[in-house]
Structures are given as C-alpha cells and as structure tokens.
Design a protein around this nucleic acid. Structure first.
Lengths: 135, 135
DNA sequence: GTACGACTTAAAGCTCACTTGAGGTCAAGG
DNA sequence: CCTTGACCTCAAGTGAGCTTTAAGTCGTAC
C-alpha cells in the first residue's frame, strides 16, 4: 500500500490531481489510515493510462467511459472500437499536419496556401472536417 | 469577399469564435463594410488549419506561432520542425493507445493491466512521459 | 425617412481540469 | 502529553477558449 506522497513521487501526478481524480471516480483509494488515503500500486498503472488518454485528447469523462475505477477497460467493446477508430482518424490528420509543417519548413515557396504540395498534404486532414459531427 | 455569416456557414466556426480569433491575431478581416467585417475566402483555409492544429492539441498561441494571420507558415523554420517533431511523438502515443484499445476490445483476458500485450503497447507511449517537461 | 435585422462592441459568464488557501485532524516522535 | 507535520476537507481561484448578454450601429427594403 502506498500513501499519497509515494504515489505523487512515483507517478509525477500532484496530490491535488489525485484527489480530484478520486472525486471524479477515475481512481479509487483502497482505504484510509486515519484520514490518510492508501492506494494500491495498481493506481500507478491507472494513472499512466489516464495520462495517455489525456495526451490523446480525451476528456476525463471520456477516459472514465473507457476504463472503470479499477483500471479495467469498460465492457462495452463497441465503444472501445469506436474510440480506436477516432484515434485512427486523428492520427491521419496529425500525420498530414506533420508532413505539412515539415514541407513548409523546407519549401522555399512564397505562399504556402498556394503551394500544391502543402495544400495536398493539408487536404488529407481537412477532408475529414465535413464528416465530423462536432467539437 | 465574404461577410461573417458566410464564413460561419462555410467553415462551421461560430461568429463569436471568428471575432475571438481575429482579436487574438490568428485571422484577419480584410476590411469593413460599415461596421461589418469582410473576409477573403482564404480565411476558410486558415480556419481549417486552426481547427487541425487545435485537434492536434496545440494552443491558439502555438498555432499563432506556426502561422501568421495571413495563413503563411512561420518564417522560423526551427519552430516548424519542432512542432513537427512534437506531432511525431504524439502520433506514436496515439498509435499505441489505438492498438491498446483495439486489443482490449478483442482480448478476453480478465485483467488488461496484467495482459502482456496490453502492457507492452501502453509502455511504448508511456516511455515518453518521463522525458516530458510538464503539463 | 424610418423600421428592420444583421452586424458591432465590451464585459461578464461558462466549462474543464486542476491548483491554492484556510482551517482541521491525527499518528508518530520527543 | 503535547507538538509537529503530513495529510485531510471544502471553497474559491486560475487560464484557456469560447459563448452569452446588453446595448449600440448601420445598410437595405419599404
């Protein structure tokens, strides 16, 4: 069992955020010693998963939908696949943007919005816009 | 020349956000008819670029650093390469997460945090955590 | 020429994801 | 026993990125 400072040290996540995550139901403390929370080492994996999800652009609520408080992926496999597909779409966009930026950093054209290579790269990502629902 | 409602219709970006972006210097209106802003159609490309950057997790300020208000990429090629590298790192994370979710959706293991395939996939992405500065 | 409605401004408000601060509790050490 | 200090709670504050609201302006249609 780890107390909150050990979790902070090993995860790099501040105590205030840990308490916030617990309040939100994303992690669970296994009990208390007096007032003080005790965490199982499993929480470190869960925190890593949360950090990963956040980095992937998911909100805490969405992450809560993918993984329950024990860190197990949610049972609804359809949702997991849906999220995976969303990530795939995102990856395509980001790849296009990365290539666009690399091209812009190297291409001497005066106006990139009129540079064919640049536009073609961006178009891959921009094409998705119309098929998106929102935000 | 487009007035603000045409830009709203064609871009899907609300007028309030367009005014906010202009205030921030991310886009520029080409003039006014009376009080009313006029936009060149180029602003649609810029808005798409902004949406893409946002989706990639960049802040409006960062996007402002990559592209000026006319939509041209920043003259500072080092910045562009830096952002491209950041995107590359992000893409690796997202790919790992996508694979992790796909695996979770299909793998019958009771505890994914103890599933080797799952852990291996996640580790790819998490490796970056330690080398990150903050936020 | 005046009424309408689409636009304008400035300021305040909202959500998310936390952080900060004030004041309280409790286990361990001296 | 009593102090220390690490932890606690609850409420308010923060910054990004907008949205909403209230009050005003202007071109067009009648």
């Amino acid at each position: 069992m780890l107390d909150i400072t050990e979790v902070v040290q090993r995860s790099g996540v501040p105590a205030s955020a840990l308490r916030y995550y617990e309040e939100k139901g994303l992690i669970a403390s296994t009990g208390r010693r007096g007032l003080k929370r005790l965490f199982s080492p499993r929480v470190l994996d869960q925190l890593a998963l949360i950090a990963l999800g956040r980095a992937a652009g998911f909100s805490l609520d969405e992450i809560g939908g993918m993984f329950d408080a024990s860190g197990e992926p949610s049972i609804d496999r359809a949702i997991l696949r849906e999220k995976a597909d969303a990530l795939d779409a995102m990856i395509k966009k980001l790849s296009a943007m990365r290539d666009g930026l690399r091209h812009a950093a190297q291409c001497p054209a005066p106006s990139h919005l009129e540079c064919d290579t640049f536009r073609r790269l961006m178009t891959v990502a921009l094409a998705r816009r119309s098929s998106e629902s929102k935000r």
